[in-house]
Design a binder for these strands. Structure first.
Lengths: 223, 223
DNA sequence: TGGCACACCATTGGATCCAATGTCGAGAGA
DNA sequence: TCTCTCGACATTGGATCCAATGGTGTGCCA
């Protein structure tokens, strides 16, 4: 007996791009890994054509790189490149937060509080994947009322392209650092609850800056 | 007599994306305009397939938008979106300049000086297209020694997605404003010649901020 | 035994064909 | 005369086929 699953037709390339993106972000595909069109196509039950379009999308997002007749790879970033991306985040994300903060509903803020409590409740026992997920959720939730598409897609791109290195960093730095992150999150959250854009921007950029500085102390992440 | 032009094979989608990008930046294609695959394909002497890939690339760059079974369009941006993009530039471009400034050779600086002299030499008689070109050239030349790909591609994206509105703004504001721009360029250039990153960042962000404020006074640009 | 050349194979690039869907206009009924 | 419905057409989405290119392995020669 077979089961027929209804799939929204006519968006295969976007769907495939999404699933490939997830695989890269989860770490199933890592910097340097080759991506073969045929293999992806049969794994997702489509022809190579929408896969090729999906790879072009990901390429423009910086999640894959492409060489003629040689195919697609997940790009490697140098330590300096990652540090500059963190500096970009340091400057752009406070803007996203400022655009969002006044429009956040009480429900939105309660949601952010909830996410932060999950991180703290898991404590030292939290695993890397779950921490990465909740940390991203925390930050994105604070930006959730920022409706500026060019800004938000940019911020997401910056997160995505450094996900691998963030994972390696969290795995290396151990749970001790997490309590620093939690303290910094608390400062941001307080400012958000007060709807204070100046404090929120300051605490957020400081949080990202300090993370960048800590990251720079672990060059083995980029080996 | 026909002339055969050697074209690097195997990069049709990139080539087509480039030419379409030029058409959008030149204003041949304007916000709201539809882009039909077939028409583009025969105009560039290719099949629809590389055109489709090219459109995906441009979509991820924010230069086109896409709806299933409805096709591609050049997106319209709201005034607020354009203003936020200028705020993003205000924060990112000083970073690019700071990364570039120490590595600029004397030849690079001479080139920047030359571009600025061209703008000033044309004076009030300069036309909109030429001013846009030289202005972009000036700024990009100051970033030319910044080798951080994620940063520079981001900066280019921000310029590209607002090119149409910049053109409309320049056309409206008349040559008077150009002398303000020139004065601000001179401040930036002096700091660059002194290789002073602090002054350079300050004058550059001020330049972009003042441009954004002037632009906000012309809501008819977004009509 | 080591290095180079050549041929085969794996993989990507491009074109054409067919299917699916949205749009627009004509015609009929109220 | 206005509106709704239906159908033809224009356009995009997807699959398959063929061409071009790059890598790899083997065999020959020094």
């Amino acid at each position: 007996m077979t089961q027929t699953i209804e799939v929204p037709t006519g968006a295969a390339s976007a769907r495939i791009a999404g699933r490939l993106r997830d695989e890269i972000l989860r770490g199933d595909l890592r910097p340097g890994d080759r991506i073969r069109q045929e293999e992806v196509a049969e794994r997702f039950g489509a022809s190579r054509l929408p896969v090729r379009e999906a790879l072009r999308i990901l390429e423009a997002e910086g999640l894959t790189e492409h060489e003629t007749h040689k195919g697609a790879r997940v790009p490697r970033l140098s330590q300096h490149e990652v540090e500059v991306i963190y500096q970009m985040r340091e400057r752009l994300e406070p803007l996203a937060l400022a655009e969002s903060i006044a429009a956040l509903t009480d429900g939105d803020v309660a949601r952010i509080e909830e996410v932060q409590q999950h991180i703290e409740a898991d404590g030292d026992g939290i695993d890397v994947a779950r921490f990465l997920e909740l940390d991203r959720e925390f930050h994105m939730a604070t930006y959730s009322a920022c409706a500026i598409d060019p800004l938000m897609s940019n911020v997401r791109r910056l997160w995505n392209s450094t996900q691998h290195y963030r994972r390696a960093f969290v795995a290396l730095s151990g749970p001790g650092r997490m309590w620093v992150v939690n303290a910094e999150h608390r400062l941001i959250l307080d400012a958000v609850e007060r709807r204070d854009p100046v404090d929120a921007e300051r605490y957020l950029s400081g949080h990202i800056r300090r993370t960048r500085i800590e990251l720079a102390k672990h060059p083995e992440v980029f080996g």
